[in-house]
């Protein structure tokens, strides 16, 4: 869901002192906002896109750059549900729990996924394969209940089709043999096309 929202075109910025090129993305956003403290949320968006989640080091880096207190940055990062301080699973399944989907029994889908994978909404399986998230309306209410599996919107789901879709995603990547790194590549690609 956290799709590309950095606006500047990809440019060959110099690598960050830490050697991790992803910091260059953060630096670019910092520069675009001229290091203004008000830009904290935008910077966190960029950081999460680049790294997948907000590690402690990353929060410290952002706090230093914006000259903000650590607790302030932590407070903001934990207030908004978009930001995650834990690594996310290789695959993710977002179940809409908005009103329209609730009326069309999305709760049964969540329950079925919970039983099938042993985790609750908001959690990641211990093997890091799957995260299940509940969302509040994905803006496709006409097609309720709605599900997003690895970025693909699926409409008019049932518990059975939902599990089948998740299983398919997991098996596909198991066959291909790698998942996580390709996700990161995706976010770079999206960077480029804007």
């Amino acid at each position: 869901m956290v799709e590309s929202r950095t606006r500047s075109a990809a440019s060959p910025d110099l690598p960050h002192p830490s050697g991790d090129p992803r910091f260059a993305l953060i630096d670019r956003t910092l520069k675009r906002f001229r290091f203004q403290q008000d830009a904290l949320i935008e910077v966190l968006h960029t950081a999460q896109e680049a790294f997948g989640f907000l590690e402690e080091d990353l929060l410290i880096y952002v706090a230093r750059q914006l000259k903000l207190p650590l607790s302030w940055v932590y407070g903001v990062a934990t207030f908004y549900h978009f930001f995650s301080l834990q690594p996310q699973g290789e695959h993710n399944c977002i179940v809409c729990m908005g009103t329209a989907c609730y009326v069309k029994r999305a709760a049964e889908i969540v329950a079925a996924l919970q039983t099938a994978y042993g985790i609750e909404a908001g959690q990641t399986t211990p093997d890091g394969m799957l995260s299940i998230t509940a969302a509040r309306c994905l803006g496709s209410c006409g097609l309720a209940p709605v599900l997003i599996v690895d970025g693909q919107v699926l409409a008019r789901e049932t518990p059975e089709t939902a599990i089948a879709a998740v299983q398919l995603a997991i098996e596909a990547s198991a066959a291909a043999g790698n998942g996580r790194s390709s996700q990161l590549d995706d976010s770079y690609d999206e960077e480029g096309d804007l």
Binding site: P69, L70, F79
Partner: peptide, 29 residues
């Protein structure tokens, strides 16, 4: 002027924190 404290989370799960939700004793601020 230290801004050691802030609040994390929201709603009934809010909690006051020091620095990056670290033990108060290690807080450098």
């Amino acid at each position: 002027g230290a801004h050691t404290w802030d609040v994390m989370g929201r709603g009934v799960n809010s909690r006051v924190i020091t620095d990056l939700n670290q033990p108060w004793g290690v807080s450098r601020s």
